[in-house]
Amino acid sequence: MNEDHLDIKTPEYVSLQFQLAGLGSRAAAFIIDQLLLMTINAIIVVILFVVMSGMSSLPFFIMDNSIPLAITIILLFILNGGYFFAFEFFSGGRTIGKKLMGIRVIQENGHSITLLSSFIRNLMRIVDSLPVSYFLGMIMIFFHSKHKRLGDIVAGTMVVHERKAKMKRKLSPIEKEIQVRGLTVKDLSVDDWSLKSLGMKEWKLISTYSRRFHQLSLNDRRDFTKQIADILLPKIRLETEGKTEEELENMLLVLYLILKEDWEFEL
């Protein structure tokens, strides 16, 4: 089945276009993730064997290893069950496999995946894996018009391709400004939970600020910066009191860089 394009009109009346990820790219990403998990699982089991063998002169198979074995089983269950859930929520809808294949999980409305959606989507992997080797999930992805498995349908998510990098693209005025100031995403310390509180409305606000940055006079830009900073920065637990005009500008420009990766979708 060919991979399709999908246009979404957000509640904020912003039109977004996505290229849906098909069975091939999703299967490849899943295989990469599974190989990674199998490797980590094997390492954990080997470590258990070595540790338990070193603690007793008895052969491993006749040792009283019920407690360490139970702990290992629980650890492996958490690892294998939480890997997809944690990566998809905290890494912008991308597991390691998805990142390598250039795809990501998002909400049907074009927003980043939520905590609840990530949980439901990955809880449904149990059903999608039936009867064996992810058979049901693959069948659903192949025949569904939007390449969704059951977990995507229940959670209201879809898997799309990342935007393609544009080679030798001319820098925009705001990108030149950020480059001249030597700013990077590392210049603003914001935890993931706070960033998740910012949605499309906040992205539109910061992107408007970046577009108008060079169009305003110095006085108007000072007032505009103060207004935007007072709205956005407290939402990510950053103080504006006592900050200079340049410090507030830098904080907002770095915030623009951070949010741009999640919200500026291009094919």
Rank of each mutant, 00 (worst) to 15 (best):
Phe143Trp: 13
Phe143Tyr: 15
Phe143Val: 12
His144Gly: 01
His144Ala: 07
Ser145Tyr: 06
Ser145Ile: 06
His147Leu: 01
His147Glu: 02
Lys148Met: 09
Lys148Asn: 07
Lys148Trp: 03
Arg149Asp: 09
Arg149Tyr: 09
Arg149Trp: 09
Gly151Asn: 07
Asp152Ile: 01
Asp152Asn: 06
Asp152Val: 02
Ile153Gln: 12
Val154Pro: 10
Val154Ala: 12
Ala155Lys: 03
Ala155Asn: 05
Gly156Glu: 09
Gly156Asn: 11
Thr157Met: 06
Thr157Pro: 09
Met158Cys: 07
Met158Val: 09
Met158Phe: 07
Val159His: 03
Val160Gly: 08
Val160Ile: 13
Val160Ser: 04
Val160Trp: 06
His161Arg: 04
His161Asp: 02
Glu162Thr: 04
Glu162Asn: 12
Glu162Gly: 00
Glu162Trp: 00
Arg163Met: 12
Arg163Tyr: 12
Arg163Asp: 13
Lys164Ser: 14
Ala165Phe: 12
Ala165Met: 10
Ala165Asn: 11
Lys166Ile: 15
Lys166Ser: 11
Met167Lys: 13
Met167Thr: 03
Met167Ala: 12
Lys168Thr: 04
Lys168Phe: 14
Lys168Asp: 12
Arg169Gln: 14
Arg169Glu: 14
Arg169Thr: 03
Arg169Tyr: 05
Leu171Tyr: 01
Leu171Cys: 00
Ser172Pro: 00
Ser172Phe: 10
Ser172Val: 01
Pro173Gly: 08
Ile174His: 08
Ile174Glu: 10
Glu175Gln: 10
Glu175Met: 02
Lys176Arg: 12
Lys176Ala: 00
Glu177Lys: 12
Ile178Gly: 03
Ile178Arg: 07
Ile178Lys: 04
Gln179Asn: 05
Gln179Gly: 01
Val180Ala: 14
Val180Asp: 11
Arg181Asp: 04
Arg181Tyr: 03
Arg181Ser: 10
Arg181Asn: 11
Gly182Thr: 03
Thr184Glu: 03
Val185His: 04
Val185Tyr: 02
Asp187Glu: 11
Asp187Ser: 09
Leu188Ser: 10
Ser189Ala: 15
Val190Gly: 10
Val190Asn: 09
Asp192Gln: 15
